[in-house]
């Protein structure tokens, strides 16, 4: 019937930062038409034990945009195969499969955001809420020669945490990094931030 086959999506890739995983591809363009896409995935179990089984993605079966948040689909630290196809009315393209399976242990971990405040003499930190996968390793110390570095593990971001009671007139410094239990990796440390009980946040 002379209907051109729908081309399969190309250039699949996954961008993953702080355990948020997004699959992207080059859009299939048909002038004046809206293309829909379907995304499916296979974990190591499926590829080992039932390779014919593919699971529809939670949020993108179907979707319009040339990208898909697959975070909720990647729920184990194993290689996941991913595939996408395009659909236009009754026309369906072939599947395009991600060249290399994606494993969440390759996610990019960035130093977390933090907010240092003083409540009287109390040093308070509030960490970026990155979700339940993340713990925070907080290091803090009084800025003086030979000062001892204290450490506190914070299990959850988004809530103020008391670090210590500060000494008047002394600068107190803090830096933090994340730790992700499911992949046993941590981020780099954040910038160090220092505060003085009476003063403003000191530049480094």
């Amino acid at each position: 019937d002379g209907v051109a086959a729908l081309p399969a999506p190309q250039n699949l890739s996954v961008q993953s930062t702080n355990m948020k995983h997004v699959l992207t591809w080059s859009p299939v363009v048909v002038p004046e038409e809206i293309i829909h896409y379907s995304v499916e995935y296979q974990g190591e179990y499926e590829s080992l034990y039932m390779s014919h089984i593919w699971i529809p993605s939670s949020w993108c079966s179907p979707t319009q945009g040339p990208e898909c948040d697959i975070t909720d689909d990647i729920t184990a630290t194993v290689p996941y195969s991913l595939r996408v196809r395009a659909t236009l009315d009754s026309l369906t393209s072939a599947w395009s499969t991600l060249k290399h399976p994606f494993n969440r242990n390759s996610t990019v971990l960035t130093p977390p955001g933090m907010e240092i405040t003083k409540d009287g003499f109390h040093l308070i930190i509030k960490l970026e809420d990155l979700g339940p996968q993340f713990e925070f390793f907080v290091a803090y110390w009084k800025r003086e020669p030979g000062a001892k570095e204290h450490v506190k593990m914070v299990r959850r971001g988004g809530i103020p945490v008391h670090l210590e009671t500060m000494e008047p007139g002394a600068a107190h410094c803090v830096k933090v990094r994340t730790f992700v239990k499911a992949i046993r990796r941590h981020s780099a440390f954040s910038q160090t931030e220092c505060v003085k009980v009476q003063g403003e946040t000191l530049p480094l």
Partner: peptide, 14 residues
């Protein structure tokens, strides 16, 4: 329940 089933199976594999 395929999604939850897959989560369990893949973590058992780990």
């Amino acid at each position: 329940i395929l999604k939850s089933f897959s989560t369990l199976a893949n973590n058992f594999i780990v």
